[in-house]
Amino acid sequence: MTRRHVFFAAVLLVLLALPLFLDKYALGIFVMIFFYAYVGQSWNVLTGYTGHISLGHALYIGIGAYATTFLAQTFGITPWIGMLVGGIAAVLIALFLGFLGFRFGIRGVYFVIMTIAFAEITRLIVSHVEALGSFSGIFVDFNPSFWNFQFRGNLPYYYISLGFMLASLVAVHLIEISKLGRFMVAIREDEEAAQALGVDTFRCNMFAIAISAFMTSLAGAFYANYIYYLHPNSLFGMALSIELILRPIVGGLGTLFGPVIGSFILTPLSEISRAYFSKGGLEGLHLILYGILAILVVLFMPKGIIVYVKRALHPILGTTNAE
């Protein structure tokens, strides 16, 4: 037991006990914090570690949400299985996108535009499929039970979303210390050099995009059974794709705790300011603040806020070896 372990155990205990002291509204904010930390982490796997920017990650959330809901409402398949089906569908699409991108050498900005194109094509197609509710979307039937992944009140969602976030931390930590993770970082730093040293960059890129898509799609299943309404524009749209990348960027791209720190800072800010500003007829103002914050972070703290958090926690944690 090092001091780090004690510290993390203490944080975990606080998070586990926290709902005792929170009302429904505050619980809801924490659900969104964990949700966006999880989604940000999923995106971070691809963009943070391998450096290929995806601006179409809403695609995988949408697929997870629609697949889970469609299977549940049409065939009565439990979301616990449906989300795996959605995950596999997301992985297949991601592998197709990845194959085109990585095999044909579509890099940098071209890759970004291709991820947007895939999300937009899917959004438009889903908007025209009658069985998926076309333009008007799907209202998810509410039958609370564990089997249906639906619950009364926010408490179960709190623990499920916390579980998602912790699982993503463990998963990404395992990737980070694995050979694959080292290769991914090598690709980010210099893809050609990595290739020259014998790294199978195509394989690593494909693994990264598949893992990232699978993780992201599970968030879609959670979203469907938390919000209870699916709309193609909000689930596949670029607004969500932008929203979900802001937290890892602000927190620290390509770091394990960056997305979590970013979400703990931005999500409460967004939830509270959204409620506060739209009451005064100032809807959209919170997104302007977001945009300004993101620009300032990129200009003045390109390594993210995690640098400062680490410095502040240095007396407790000691030197970190996972740099």
Binding site: I242, I292, A294
Partner: peptide, 10 residues
């Protein structure tokens, strides 16, 4: 990419 995306958002 990111600052200009953020600029578009603003």
């Amino acid at each position: 990419v990111l600052p200009l995306v953020a600029m578009g958002l603003i």
